[in-house]
Amino acid sequence: MDKIKVLIVDDSAFMRKLITDFLSEHPVLEVAGTARNGEEALRKLQELQPDVVTLDVEMPSMNGIEVLRKIMSSRPVPVVMLSSTTKAGAENTLQAMQYGAVDFITKPSGSISLDLHKVKQELIDKVISASKANIDKVYSDEKHTEPDSSHLSEKRLKTNFKKPNEAPFHPKWEERRKKLVCIGTSTGGPRALQQVLTRLPKEISAPVLVVQHMPPGFTKSLADRLNMLSNITVKEAEDGEILQKGTAYIAPGGYHLEVRAVGASLATSLTTTDARNGHRPSVDVLFESVGRIENFSKVAVIMTGMGSDGALGLAAMKKQGSVKAIAESSESCIVFGMPKAAISTNLVDDIKEVDEIAAAIMHYI
């Protein structure tokens, strides 16, 4: 089995040594080299031809964002950013995700983190996952125009995703009921969410609930950024607020997002119960919560991400009521993990490329 070659870029010699030691311990990872600044990184990128780059966001002279943009234009390769949890760090990291970084790791205690061991396993997992990313999609030129109507025909679930001897389960769709939209995503999610939320019309007659796997300190910046770009209102969810049509609520990092009935209305509920699938917020927790809401028809969307979060929650939703499920296609996913797991349940109604998902949601709304 070929090893995954990694180039480590950080201006701190201590951090370069620590990251090298962590990654070298894993049998499938090989540290091909290190670089202390952007110029050296770009040179070694050509010399070493790594499979993945880890890149510090905050570096002097040429910062991580500038290096990332040059990598994209010279030799596209999966990049995992290392960032601080400051407000500026969060905003820079989200900018990096938009410019093509596959994923990011937060340093536990600033630029030089003596306690980096706390995120050692996460770093290893994300480097390995990044090596499998859909690079053609990550670095393709984004088209920010509305999709051509010829591409909006429904792509029905392919029969090869059905489990043997198992009939599909399709509860009746109650079109006249009030609607609720819930979206789950992870690796590659910020870019995918931008593609979807910016295409939803301001007058959408449903609230939208979003779980994006992110640590505390980043979801507020994500919500603010998407709010500036979207026709609908996008905000970080607060505990106990009444859901409004035309508003998307993003689960705060470190909290599960659930929904509860308050009279004839619905309200958010933020909880710190145990992580599910290694995540808090968890898509399964949101979907299961939405599934318990009565007298609503729900649209569930699962987009790009590593792992299987959302598949069990989708099954729970389908058992309890009127649900239409949309999964992002492998062609547009950065990582086809979560959508693939959802599709394998045989409960997904439509498989769509990311730029078609908003139209698919509106079809049901």
Rank of each mutant, 00 (worst) to 15 (best):
V354T: 11
V127H: 06
Y364G: 05
L23H: 11
S332F: 04
V196F: 08
T273M: 04
L286M: 14
A237D: 05
E353F: 00
V335R: 05
E236K: 02
G240Q: 06
K319H: 07
M97K: 11
V9S: 12
S111F: 11
G64D: 03
R225L: 10
L197D: 07
V285N: 08
T185I: 09
G89F: 01
E174F: 00
D274W: 00
I112C: 05
P339E: 09
A261R: 14
S230I: 12
I71H: 01
V53K: 09
V127T: 03
H26P: 13
H170P: 00
Q195R: 09
D309I: 11
V301G: 08
D309P: 07
M81H: 09
G291W: 03
K318Y: 08
M214C: 06
H117C: 00
A358N: 05
D103Q: 10
E258Y: 00
A167W: 02
K158M: 07
T198L: 06
V127K: 06
E238H: 03
K118V: 14
S84I: 09
E91S: 12
G189D: 07
T34P: 12
Q46R: 15
P27H: 14
L68N: 03
P215E: 02
A101C: 05
M81R: 08
D274E: 15
S289E: 04
K5M: 02
F161G: 00
L229P: 00
V283L: 02
G110I: 10
H363G: 07
L94F: 13
F161C: 06
N165L: 11
H144S: 13
S230D: 09
L94M: 13
T198Y: 08
I112A: 06
D11W: 03
S330L: 04
P108Q: 12
L7D: 01
V354N: 10
K340T: 01
E236D: 04
M72L: 01
S84R: 03
A248W: 10
E40C: 07
S282E: 07
E258A: 12
E353L: 00
M72C: 01
I302N: 02
Y255I: 01
V6I: 15
S205P: 06
S297C: 10
A325N: 07
D309S: 10
S109A: 12
A342K: 02
K137L: 11
N63W: 02
G246V: 03
D21H: 10
I334P: 07
Q320Y: 07
E166H: 14
H26M: 13
I112V: 15
G110M: 09
V259R: 02
V9N: 14
V210S: 11
N277Y: 06
L55K: 12
V6H: 14
E30P: 13
I135F: 01
L45C: 06
N92P: 00
D284Q: 05
S24T: 15
